[in-house]
């Protein structure tokens, strides 16, 4: 069935007006970041940001933590989702439920709850880094579960598994050499979204006292308005890059949820 297209003026009006709403802040930010006090254009704000050692430190920290969160999330979700698909379909709704439950607990509440439960104690759980990674792992679950689940649905899990087992593979080998390579596309989609989300995350990192990229942006922006604008453009470029790569891979599901706003 073909789509009946609405001719006329209204669709264009809507598109132009919303495009204005979305483009104007970007233009304004770019202009603000490039403006020179006496008039004219300069890249000074960008140079100041890129020369700042804390910029690189915080960025590196956030990238590493985001990657760690993705790995933790995958190590938890892949085995559970795989086994549910293969042997215990009854468990699938439970795994799904636990994976989307983070929606009910906003990031600020999550970190508050984790600090309240473990923060006062001793041992590894009371370490801020453990609490940070744990929070980010929880935040990553919905995205990773959705992409892993979609990936598993699109392949014949039992047949692949039986084939591999009958050729003498152990379970570790099945997961590592058979299931994961087939999941690659689906995994990349979810992982990129999580990376984009956690790299600029502010609430959890600041509560736990880390100098993450988000925290660095806020501290810098409070003192230097032009650098704030430059950082906003850089952050926008990074998200654009990650989502662009995701789209290029063509398998991403780019809808988001409560996440780390």
């Amino acid at each position: 069935m073909s789509v009946r297209r609405t001719s006329g003026f209204t669709p264009w009006l809507i598109v132009v007006l919303t495009a204005l709403y979305f483009v104007v802040p970007l233009v304004a930010t770019a202009q603000f970041s490039l403006a020179e006090p006496g008039g004219g254009v300069s890249l000074q704000a960008y140079a100041a940001v890129l020369r700042d050692a804390s910029f690189w430190h915080s960025l590196r920290f956030s990238v590493l933590v985001a990657l760690a969160a993705v790995l933790i999330g995958l190590a938890l979700v892949v085995p559970a989702a795989y086994w549910a698909h293969l042997r215990v379909p009854r468990m699938r709704p439970w795994v799904e439920l636990f994976s989307i439950l983070p929606f009910v607990v906003p990031p600020i509440v999550l970190v508050f709850g984790i600090v309240r439960l473990y923060g006062g104690g001793v041992g590894p759980m009371a370490s801020p880094l453990v609490m940070l990674l744990a929070s980010y792992g929880v935040i990553a679950l919905p995205y990773l579960f959705r992409s892993v689940d979609n990936g598993l649905r699109s392949m014949d899990v039992p047949r692949l598994t039986e084939a591999a087992l009958s050729l003498g593979a152990g379970w570790g080998m099945v997961l590592w050499r058979v299931i994961l390579p087939n999941l690659r596309g689906a995994l990349l989609g979810g992982s990129f979204l999580v990376l984009a989300l956690i790299m600029g995350e502010y609430a959890i990192a600041s509560m736990l006292g880390f100098n993450s990229f988000g925290v660095y942006m806020l501290l810098t922006g409070e003192n230097a308005a032009q650098q704030a604008a430059a950082l906003a453009m850089i952050a926008f470029g990074m998200v654009w890059l990650l989502i662009g790569l995701l789209q290029l891979l063509g398998r991403g599901d780019i809808s988001a949820n409560a996440g780390a706003r």
Binding site: E201, Y202, G221, F236, I243
Partner: peptide
């Protein structure tokens, strides 16, 4: 996809 993830501090 980009704008829905462009939130927070920036």
């Amino acid at each position: 996809g980009v704008a829905s993830n462009f939130a927070g501090v920036p």
